[in-house]
Write a protein that binds this DNA or RNA. Structure first.
Length: 424
RNA sequence: GUGGCCGUAGCUCAGUUGGUUAGAGCGCCAGGUUGUGGCCCUGGAGGUCGGGGGUUCAAGUCCCCUCGGUCACCCCA
């Protein structure tokens, strides 16, 4: 247990503050995603960050790493056992089950997610995800729509190296046959597996496929493949998904060992990775179909498919590819006041009421200081009001790019700035 | 949870084999004729050297602990 800290409080380990102006990029990212989602008919869904802990135990999986080792759990003052959401899908499905909206119900979200793990490049205890979920249909074209939405988003941001891996995990019908085949294979190669999996793979042999240690990877390279065990409906579904991606020009490749760490996946799984990311965490998004999840959490059966994109990692990928540069937001007008503040106060508000982004200096700074601030603010115009202008009822309008200056009646200022006469 | 590396001004860093009042650049503030920014010049503010303990005549420099950061394993976004 950590000792009681001293000094001013700090943000908890593994969390970050995104200060302005850096946050401008974040803001833009969410806006772009929202637009894309809306174009495809996905509406914003807001759900609580807190959920009953049992939602994730049942949904994400009792034995999954995320639940057993990484979940933030707490008991509230009323004795309720709650958890901070470790991922985005289960809460969406919970809301769907609880409210039973018309299907297909297509929603997008932006949310923090919490996992108690050691932070490193591209990995935090609180990270943020952008995602969509489409519930109530098992149409493979819906898988295609969802995947294309994500793929198009990466392209829109200027990410050119993002690769899409896909796989199918089958369903409750064909999974048992595959599991026994995999188990039989692993039994004959048990001695060659990594330390962690040598003794224990019985509970969920799929985990071994996900193991990145060289020993396990060498063994699983020759293991039976999920796609070879799909029953007819699942095989047809997967074929339709891949054909749809091809038809839309969404490049992808089969990754037979892609199983992902959350237990709820069935049929389609996919993952986007950016090899441009230097760090070990180069997965910038992932998702899949989860036709058994609604039922697993106690609702009536409902299929679903969706994905999550990690905002922090996505931005790291943008840095690595020198993509998605966003200019810091700048005001249109900087109001310079030499009358003691009253004129500046009133004029700034007047401009804002007219829809112009207007800022000013405080603390009665010198003219020189105010103009310096105006320059650094990035504003195109400075509107200067001193005692002389106040008496005459005018303002000096200064073009901060060139430096030219002209005086105009104060009641003409808004019209000048918003009318296009001065704007170019 | 395990391991490597690193903690000196707001930021990026320098601080010789331990030796006076801890420095630079950038940023910030003020001034450079009474009301005009950017460039330049001058000056200024700002640091419990992450924290605690120890060694020593003397610790930013060495040792231990601790907190934090960072990277990796694992897993994932």
């Amino acid at each position: 247990m950590a000792e009681e800290p001293t000094g001013p409080p700090r943000g908890p380990v593994g969390t970050r503050d995104v200060l302005w102006p850096e946050s401008a990029r974040w803001e833009q990212l969410v806006a772009r995603f929202a637009r894309r989602a809306r174009l495809a008919g996905y509406g914003l869904l807001v759900t609580p960050v807190l959920e009953e802990a049992r939602l994730f135990r049942r949904g994400v999986g009792e034995a999954s790493e995320v639940v057993t080792k990484e979940m933030y759990e707490l008991t509230d003052r009323g004795g309720r056992h709650l958890a901070l959401r470790p991922e985005g899908t289960a809460p969406v499905v919970r809301a769907f089950v609880q409210h039973n909206p018309p299907v297909p119900y297509k929603a997008w979200y932006v949310t923090p997610a919490f996992r108690y793990e050691r932070p490193q490049a591209g990995r935090y205890r609180q990270h943020h995800q952008l995602g969509v979920e489409a519930l109530g249909s098992d149409d493979p074209d819906l898988d295609v729509e969802v995947i294309a939405l994500a793929a198009g988003f990466y392209v829109e941001l200027g990410l050119s190296r993002v690769a899409l891996a896909v796989n199918s995990m089958g369903c409750g019908e064909d999974r048992p046959a595959y599991l026994s085949a995999l188990r039989a294979y692993l039994d004959t190669h048990a001695a060659e597996l990594c330390d962690e999996h040598r003794e224990r793979y019985g509970a969920n042999p799929l985990r071994v496929l996900d193991c990145k240690r060289p020993a396990c990877m060498a063994v699983t390279a020759g293991a039976p493949r999920l796609v070879d065990f799909l029953d007819a409906p699942c095989a047809a579904h997967f074929a339709r998904v891949r054909a749809g991606l091809d038809a839309l020009g969404v490049h992808h490749h089969l990754e037979p060992r892609l199983v992902r760490g959350l237990d709820y996946y069935t049929r389609t799984t996919f993952e986007f990775s950016d090899p441009g990311l230097e760090s070990a965490q180069n997965a910038v998004g992932g998702g899949g179909r989860y036709d058994g999840l609604a039922e697993a959490i106690g609702g009536k059966p409902a299929p679903g498919v969706g994905f999550g994109i990690g905002i922090e990692r996505l931005l790291l990928a943008c840095d690595a590819e020198a993509a998605f540069a966003v200019a810091a937001p700048a005001p249109e007008v900087f109001v310079v006041d030499l009358t003691g503040g009253e004129e500046g106060r009133d004029l700034a508000e007047e401009l804002r009421r007219a829809g112009l982004a207007a800022v000013r200096a405080f603390d009665d700074r010198s003219l020189k200081a105010q103009l310096r601030l105006a320059d650094r603010s990035g504003a195109r115009w400075a509107a200067v009001v001193g005692p002389a202008e106040k008496d005459k009822g005018t303002v000096q309008l200064k073009d901060l790019r060139g430096g030219s200056d002209r005086e105009l009646p104060r009641d003409r200022l808004v019209a000048e700035l918003s009318g296009g006469e001065v704007r170019q």
